[in-house]
Each structure stands twice: as C-alpha cells, then as structure tokens.
C-alpha cells in the first residue's frame, strides 16, 4: 500500500507540474493531446491491458489535479467509457482500449437525463455529452444494456449546447433508428446493470474529486488576491471579516476532501457497483459539489469588482461549480437518495 501511495504521490506531483505549466483553464486543443500523450487515460486500466492499474484512487487523484486547473478536457467522460470497455468481455476489448487511450477519443454523458430507448434500434436524445464533435464513439447506457455507438454515422445528430460553464463543451446527441447490430454492445442484462451502477459510482467520485481540486485552486487564487490587493492602506487579507470567510472555505474543502479519501479507502475497485459504494460516492459528490458551490460564491464576492470581469478566472470556477451540482442525477436527488436509504435501513 505504501509503495502504491508513493507512486500516487509522484504521479500527483507530476500532474500538478503539468497543469501549472498549462495554466488555469488550458485549452482543449493543446491539453487534450497532452493528456493522451502522458498516458493519463491509462491510469485506471489494469496492467494486463497495458494500463497503470491504479484504479479509482489513481484516477481520482488526476481528476483532482485537472479540476484544480479547470482543465477543458473531456477526461472524465473518456475514463468512464474506457472503464466500461475494461469491464466488458467483448473480443475486441484490448484493441478498443488501446485505440481510445492513445488515439481516437471516446465520450460519455455526465448526467442522467437520457431519453434514449432501445429495441433493435436506438432512438432518442442523450444530453450532456462532452466534446462529442471530436470523439469517434459515445457510451450509451439504457436500462439493462451498455453500448458503444459511433458518433459519425447515419442517424446520429450532434448539436452543440451553449453552456455557462465554458470549460466544458457539451452536446446533445440524437439517435434516429440507429441499428443496434452495427454497434458494439458491451454488456446486457445483470452485467449491464452492474456496469451502469459502477459507472455511476466512478462518475460521482470523479465529480467529487473535480470539485475538491477546483475549490482548493480557487481558494489559493482568492488568498493571493486578498494578500496583494490593498484598500484603506492595507492588504485586504488583514481584515478579519475576510480572513474568517477564508478559514470557513478551507475547512469546508478539507472536510470534503477527507470524506472523498475516506470513502475511497473503504472500497476496492471490484466493489464499485455495490449499493454501499454507490452511496459513498453519492455522499462524496453531494458534499464536494455543495462545498465547491459555496466556495466559488464566496470567492467571487471576495474578489470584488475584478471577479465580475471575464478576463479573471473567478467566474470560470463559479460556472463549473454550478454545472457540477447538476451533473450525475443532481444534488437534490442525492440528498433524497441518501436519506431514503438511511430510513429504509432503519425500518
């Protein structure tokens, strides 16, 4: 375990260095090829499939670092799709994993708002799909079927959605009579249900990590601002009213980070589909996303006028935090899920 931790820490340090070099909200066009080149997509892929075998721990660490820099890359979507491939037992799995981790991009929706129905054909709309225009395939989960669908074929229509959060390029993907037989079915039945549950846990943990990293990065920027900006002949950081708000932000961030780390330490990769893991992931996501929303609201206020200027990155954090709250199945549903599970256990 300690050897693994050491390795993770090294990876974290190098990821931090890369992200610091690229700067806040680095462009997808430059950062994505770098992400692929650095092999980050292979982080959670098992060693026997030529990955690093670092599992959900390793990939969470990267999500944190990418969140910190507000990276404009569809890393989360791609890791979900790659994980689905890893879990599948299709013949072409090794080949597809290699393709999607080193060359072509694959994507997946980040919210549970699909209207896609499946018979012999796929119909309906998949929403919140990042960078669908530059990806070759998208992962589609419908009830008890997980399928990889080519994005550039007849019957598939992409429509870019303008979003307040400009660090993600989101698309609606509409399917009209797309023939299932021509796509790659990754799982069906119980296996698909388990796969979908696992993907939800992974997504929730990843979003939690994204929030933790981004909030920590934003607090750093905010404190730097308070330390340098002077009013009334002194740095703003001398005002207790402002210092105390930073202390609250720091405490919220550390608690969310501790919950994420604690939750991850309680499960193995193999348990991700279990109900307890799903619940841990939901709690981590809920706490981290609420925290990031609180922190980014405060940060904007603490920046004063400059925070309202688009040239300053403050608003990018706020917008990412607002979107994050609604990803997955939305914070409100997570609150209910957690309470209802708790109540059911008592009954």
């Amino acid at each position: 375990m300690s050897e693994l931790n050491e390795y993770l820490n090294e990876l974290k340090a190098s990821a931090r260095q890369v992200m610091d070099g690229e700067g806040t909200a680095a462009e997808e066009a430059t950062l994505w090829p770098l992400t692929v080149e650095l092999g980050w997509l292979l982080t959670a892929v098992p060693e026997e499939l030529d990955g690093l075998g670092l599992g959900v721990h390793g990939v969470s660490m990267l999500h944190t670092e990418l969140g910190r820099g507000l990276a404009q890359v569809p890393f989360l979507a791609a890791t979900l799709a790659v994980d689905a491939l890893v879990q599948s037992d299709i013949d072409t799995k090794a080949e597809l994993i290699s393709r999607f981790t080193t060359g072509d991009a694959v994507t997946a929706p980040l919210a549970d708002v699909s209207t896609v129905t499946l018979t012999d054909t796929l119909n309906g709309k998949l929403s919140v799909v990042p960078s669908a225009d530059t990806a070759s395939d998208v992962l589609v989960c419908v009830d008890d079927c997980v399928v990889l669908v080519k994005l550039h074929q007849a019957g598939v229509e992409l429509s870019a959605r303008g979003t307040w959060d400009t660090t993600r390029r989101l698309f609606d993907v509409t399917f009209s009579n797309v023939v299932l037989a021509n796509q790659v079915v990754l799982a069906r039945g119980d296996a698909a249900v388990a796969m979908i549950a696992r993907l939800q846990s992974l997504r929730d943990f990843a979003l939690a990590a994204d929030c933790v990293g981004a909030a920590a990065g934003l607090l750093d920027i905010t404190i730097e601002h308070l330390n340098t900006r002077e009013q009334f002949g002194r740095p703003l950081a001398l005002f207790q009213a402002l210092k105390h708000r930073c202390a609250d932000m720091k405490t919220l961030i550390d608690a969310a980070e501790a919950l994420l780390a604690d939750s991850l330490s309680r499960i193995t990769d193999e348990q991700l589909a279990e109900i307890d893991s799903q619940l841990l992931a939901k709690k981590a996501k809920l706490v981290a996303c609420s925290m990031f929303a609180d922190v980014s609201e405060e940060a904007l206020q603490l920046h004063g006028g400059i925070g309202m200027a688009s040239e300053h990155p403050c608003h990018l954090f706020l917008k990412r935090s607002m979107l994050n709250e609604h990803l997955g199945s939305g914070n409100g549903n997570y609150e209910l899920d957690i309470a209802d599970h708790f109540l059911a256990q008592l009954a």
Binding site: A255, A256, K283, E335, I338, A339
Partner: peptide
C-alpha cells in the same frame, strides 16, 4: 428528507 440527507453526508464528512 432532503435536509436529512444533507446532514447525514455532512456528519460523514465531519467524521472523516
């Protein structure tokens, strides 16, 4: 119930 869910998660975070 939603507030209960929120508090449960917060308590877990505090314990962590």
């Amino acid at each position: 119930r939603r507030d209960l869910g929120k508090v449960i998660a917060r308590v877990d975070a505090c314990c962590a």
